[in-house]
Computed example of a mutant assay.
Amino acid sequence: MTSITLYSPTIFTFSETDKVDRERSIEFINSLETHFLKGVDITIDLSNTIDAYAETTLVLFAQIHSMRCRNRTKKKQNHIQIIYPTQDSNPNGYALFISTGLHSALEASSEEDIIALTTRNNFYQSGNSDRFDDMVLSNWEMILREEISIEQQFLLHQGVSEAILNVKNHAYITKQSLCNKIGKGRWWQCSWYQRSKRTFVFLVYDMGCGILGSYSKENLTDTECLREAMTEGYTRYNNRKRGKGSENIKQVISQNVETERLTVYTDNLIYLFQYNDGIASDRCVTSQVLAPINGTLVVWTLTLLEDE
Rank of each mutant, 00 (worst) to 15 (best):
M1D: 12
T2L: 08
V20D: 14
S25Q: 06
I26V: 09
N48S: 12
T49W: 07
I50S: 12
I50E: 14
Y53V: 09
T57D: 04
H65S: 15
S66N: 14
Q77L: 11
N90G: 08
I98E: 06
H103Q: 10
S109L: 13
E111C: 04
D113F: 06
I114K: 05
N121I: 10
R131M: 14
D133T: 11
N139C: 12
W140C: 10
L144R: 07
E147R: 11
E147P: 05
E147C: 13
E151T: 09
L155E: 12
L155R: 04
G159N: 01
G159D: 02
G159W: 00
A163E: 02
L165W: 08
H170P: 03
H170R: 01
A171P: 06
S177Q: 15
K181H: 11
G183S: 08
G185E: 09
R186K: 14
W188M: 01
Y193L: 01
S196Q: 13
K197I: 11
F200M: 01
D206T: 00
C209S: 15
I211Y: 01
S214L: 02
T223D: 09
I249H: 02
V252Q: 04
Q255R: 08
N256I: 03
T259H: 12
I270V: 13
I270E: 13
F273D: 03
R283M: 13
Q288T: 15
N294D: 15
